[in-house]
């Protein structure tokens, strides 16, 4: 059963510099028990989409259903069946214990206190912060505070839970716990987990399906494996001297669909990762690099990642996109 449905969802913001199309005819469905990832660089429209689905913002056009309820006409019903957490929030009352904070949020949904207490213990055990429950919020470390935020999103036993960059800035151990919780909650308790992220590793590890979004448009939706295998073009990694970094935009190289450059200033090397139009262009690229005086130490064909899929679709990586480099 589809728990989240978006049909031609469009959102236009009126800004001082003109109209900004934040979402452009977005359509998709997310099933019950599915972990669904929304992958895209900052500014792609992920947060706008989540704000619409969590009833915070109205769409300009289009329709969205959460748990079968219309987010515009039945906002109250939607609110009672969803949970939400964002890494950017600093939510809670500092002078109140973690337990009492979680209880308060359960009361926003009218949860009976006995049931709320049971859920608090259960979630604290799953995220391993039982020993922190009776400490005041301001005494908790960032990692525990972030885990508390994740627990809070599940406190009302929601049908659909939205997360906006949930593990951003989180320590490795906490992030692992959180990812395990997402999968468990989706598979065991049949919740829909809707995850907006720009963390490729996270999307690959936990998501059943991933939608790649850029500039308000969904470019592809499929399982991470299918998305990667759909990329028939070869991905090649060149290790060069630091002069390689002078190629600010690899797509300008003849035969290259898109690519990224990572500079290692310490070792004075650069890694140029490109997606070639086809195998035959490899020699051509090597010649072009040599012609520009760039020394290639090593090159190899590598397995594609989700970012490569993104690059093949838009011509630039996340970092380049965020810097505003056009394909």
């Amino acid at each position: 059963m589809a728990n989240v449905v978006a049909e031609n969802l469009t959102r236009v913001f009126e800004t001082k510099s003109g109209r900004l199309l934040a979402l452009d005819s977005v359509s998709f469905e997310v099933q019950t028990g599915e972990v669904f990832g929304l992958l895209g660089p900052n500014g792609a429209g992920k947060t706008t989409l989540i704000r619409i689905l969590t009833t915070l913002l109205l769409p300009t056009y289009g329709r969205a259903l959460v748990g079968g309820f219309d987010v515009v006409k039945e906002a109250k019903k939607v609110r009672s069946i969803i949970g939400f957490s964002s890494s950017s929030e600093r939510v809670g009352f500092d002078f109140v214990t973690a337990r009492r904070n979680l209880w308060f949020f359960s009361q926003l949904y009218g949860t009976p206190t006995g049931e709320a207490n049971r859920r608090i213990e259960e979630l604290a055990a799953l995220l391993e912060f039982q020993d922190q429950l009776d400490r005041k919020l301001y005494t908790l470390t960032t990692g525990y505070r972030q885990r508390l935020n994740i627990a809070r999103a599940f406190i009302n036993d929601p049908q659909v839970v939205f997360f906006d960059e949930p593990t951003n800035g989180m320590d490795v151990f906490s992030a692992k716990k959180v990812r395990e919780l997402f999968v468990k909650e989706a598979k065991t308790n049949s919740r829909t987990i809707f995850l907006a992220t720009h963390n490729m590793f996270e999307a690959e590890e936990v998501c059943d399906r991933v939608a790649i979004i850029d500039r308000g448009r969904i470019l592809a939706i499929d399982s991470p494996e299918n998305l990667k295998s759909s990329l028939s073009k070869p991905v090649v990694l060149f290790e060069t001297d630091i002069a390689g970094a002078s190629i600010s935009d690899p797509t300008r190289l003849d035969g290259v669909v898109g690519g990224t450059i990572k500079v290692d200033n310490e070792n004075e090397t650069a890694k140029i990762r490109v997606i070639l139009r086809d195998e035959d262009f490899l020699e051509r690229v090597l010649q072009l690099l040599e012609k520009r005086g760039i020394r290639v130490f090593n090159y190899q064909r590598i397995e594609p990642t989700l970012e490569d899929v993104f690059i093949s679709l838009v011509g630039a990586g996340f970092a380049e996109r965020e810097r505003g480099i056009e394909a």
Binding site: R79, S80, E89, V91, Q107, Y109, G110
Partner: peptide
Amino acid sequence: RSGMLYLYIASPA
């Protein structure tokens, strides 16, 4: 500013 209002509005409270 703390993000709490988001949670209030996104809940049935």
